[in-house]
Design a protein around this nucleic acid. Structure first.
Lengths: 230, 230
DNA sequence: GCGCTAATGCCACTGAGTGGCATAACTGTG
DNA sequence: CACAGTTATGCCACTCAGTGGCATTAGCGC
């Protein structure tokens, strides 16, 4: 059984629920710590479970996979995003902007103590661990599908098979990942509002990414085959 | 520029190499067949290896994972894309267009007999199999990073930390996946040129996805909170 | 034919993930 | 405070993906 003194923020939940949340949080924190120091593959699930004093069976009742426990912080953000999306009123503004707004609002709601630090550790791990990256991308993909359903339910698009809503979502995710990478590689511990800044920058760069041209200044690339024109 | 990739023309390759390619192809085809009929998780690697009469050890010398063998067709396309990107001369046109051009050119080169059918089976499997989807997304992510390196090497962007080249690549991939999903859900067996068509449509929809607005016609969504305006 | 090299097969092993079932812990009644 | 109902947990055995080591085989150059 788990210790009795430490606690996160305990809502007015029943004791059983609080205990469950506490072991869940302990698993996340311990996993991030162990993975960070010894590498994702350098820690077995049995070791992690031993450290938290929990059976492996219990671990898999809280998380779907070994990767999952280390991705929890980011997943919280996206789940909140979906929630925000449900409550957002569509004004006359572009759908893409509405999505960005919802994501900012979700970020605003990540008030849990140490959330930014957990995301930071999680992302730095994901960069080094292919299977974590893969699972993270898949989770985003699933979130995107759910969000797309929400969009189609709440907004009536002219054509039900319009490609643009889906693309708008994928663009949002692409820009977010771009921002997240920037944020992750910032020197010293970046904050939540730093992430908001990076997100603003990435969103702002989105339109220009389609029209970006490279000025044919000197171009060292043409060295190889200069006499190519017909 | 164009390195000879493992294509059907088993040209003047040494016998040993041809044998290797043949078992590789047999593994891919048998895997797609078995996975399609009995589901990805309904087939163990031992069964697959038995069917092809190959040891499990040999399987893992050809493919990195169980998912990998079923994703091979799409991976061929992206590897060819990278190859095309190396050989492409940048005219004055937008980078995004250049990337699209390279992808079309790569598609043009997928002349292997039955390639389209293999991709079709692969994608329909990936839709039903989370781990396949995850690995596919991760592969695209890796490809994107490699392509980004190529871009930075061959074109000299003003700012080395410009976000737009990366975003352009992610947009390309998003649109491609969009097209691929459309293509996969076409009735009766779609062809390679069908895919080109779907890709053109998806690329064309890209600019509009950022500006798309929903006309506030009736809007069934406003039912809940109508008196909301300040 | 005859070494040389590289692919293969075989075997044992680690570790993720699952199912079943008994037990312990919380909950809400009387 | 006991009691019954519910729910999380622990334990055990099991499947299967993936790896490392080493002997064997098969293509290759001479």
């Amino acid at each position: 059984m788990t210790a009795d003194l430490p606690s996160t923020d305990n809502g007015r939940l029943p004791l059983r629920e609080r205990k469950k949340l506490r072991t869940r949080q302990a698993l996340i924190d311990t996993a991030l710590e162990l993975f960070t120091t010894r590498g994702f593959n350098g820690v077995t699930l049995d070791e992690l479970c031993d450290a938290v004093d929990v059976s492996k069976r219990t671990f898999f009742r809280n998380f779907a996979s070994k990767e999952d426990v280390a991705m929890a912080p980011t997943q919280d953000l996206w789940r909140t995003f979906l929630d925000e999306l449900e409550g957002h009123e569509p004004d006359g503004r572009p759908v893409a902007e509405m999505l960005q707004q919802a994501l900012f609002a979700a970020l605003e709601r990540m008030t849990e103590e140490g959330w930014a630090r957990r995301v930071l550790l999680s992302r730095r791990l994901a960069e080094k661990t292919p299977s974590m990256d893969a699972h993270g991308l898949h989770f985003c993909h699933e979130t995107s599908r759910t969000a797309l359903d929400t969009l189609h339910r709440r907004l009536q698009f002219a054509a039900p098979d319009d490609l643009r809503p889906r693309l708008a979502l994928d663009l949002l995710i692409a820009a977010f990942h771009c921002a997240l990478d920037r944020w992750t590689s910032r020197p010293d511990t970046p904050t939540r509002s730093d992430l908001a800044t990076d997100m603003r920058n990435a969103f702002a760069a989105l339109p220009g990414s389609l029209t970006l041209t490279v000025d044919p200044r000197e171009g060292p690339f043409t060295l190889v085959r200069e006499n190519h024109s017909p």
